[in-house]
């Protein structure tokens, strides 16, 4: 016996409708070609370098970022570099958005990239950061200048000592750092003359544990100098460690020492008092 199956009319309608809808989605969905080779606009500019490159230099890399959120700054890929004495012409991949500046980061051979500890400069004009806006249509930004000082990462002297933390330190500290800086820079800062570009180029920031013990021993390599200041700085969650307002977050009093290149470690004792910031 031959059995014939009657096709319900509504299924035909359902199917034709479904197939048309499906075809529309497919065609609509596939009318683009996906990845765009020119998705990342190019940023070109000049690196103006002050100071000799330390022997342990791996590379100097650049990152577009916000001064309030450095850790999210994305380092550039390969930089196309052409050198003219102390000035280097660079080309880097940008990303769409508005950024406070291009930051320069020194990278030491054999160690991971440390954005906070090895920031050596930024795109600046008259001591202020140069904001950069990259849009979808801007395939190439205007030429920018990134000022880099490598003096602070020429760390040929040593310092050791102990930090004594007094009082109870709060739990909401985002970064706690020991800062080494020439005395002259600090005096300018006290007078309100410090700008963020100078801060990035001259202050050598070394991160400490967020919850240190009452007495914390330290040993660091630092840039040599006749009169170096060491003091503790911190920022709370949501604040920036790099803003000029960092001055209000330095714990005083500072300590002074002399760091001699290729010599025994200088010794210093630092007292950090929570609640007694300048």
């Amino acid at each position: 016996m031959r059995v014939s199956i009657k096709r319900p009319q509504r299924w035909q309608i359902f199917f034709i409708g479904f197939m048309i809808a499906l075809l529309s989605v497919v065609i609509h969905g596939c009318n683009d070609h996906g990845l765009d080779p020119n998705f990342f606009p190019k940023v070109t500019g000049r690196l103006v370098i002050d100071g000799a490159q330390p022997l342990k230099t791996d590379e100097i890399t650049l990152a577009l970022g916000l001064s309030t959120d450095f850790l999210r700054a994305v380092p550039s890929g390969d930089l196309s570099l052409t050198a003219e004495s102390d000035t280097v012409i660079f080309q880097m991949e940008g990303v769409i958005g508005r950024f406070d500046a291009i930051f320069a980061i020194w990278k030491e051979l054999g160690t991971p990239l440390s954005i906070i500890e090895n920031m050596v400069g930024a795109s600046c004009i008259d001591g202020a950061l140069t904001p950069i806006e990259i849009t979808k249509d801007s395939k190439q930004t205007d030429t920018v200048q990134v000022n880099v000082s490598l003096r602070k990462v020429n760390r040929r002297a040593k310092v050791r000592g102990t930090i004594t933390f007094n009082n109870d330190w709060p739990d909401d500290i985002d970064n706690l750092a020991l800062i080494f800086t020439p005395v002259s820079v600090l005096f300018n800062a006290s007078g309100g003359g410090l700008n963020v570009c100078t801060l990035l180029q001259k202050m050598d920031i070394r991160l400490l544990p967020k919850k240190p013990t009452a007495k914390l021993d330290f040993f660091y390599h630092v840039a040599p100098g006749d009169s170096i200041t060491a003091l503790v700085a911190y920022n709370k969650v949501g604040q920036s460690l790099f803003q000029p307002s960092i001055i209000s977050e330095l714990t005083f009093p500072p300590t002074f020492f002399r760091a001699v290149a290729d010599s025994a470690a200088a010794k210093t004792q630092i007292t950090a008092n929570w609640g007694q910031t300048k």
Binding site: G29, C30, G34, L35, D36, F39, F40, V74, P75, G77, E93, V95
Partner: peptide, 9 residues
């Protein structure tokens, strides 16, 4: 490193 993310189609 930067990367453009697009859906798979």
């Amino acid at each position: 490193g930067r990367h453009q993310f697009v859906p798979q189609k």
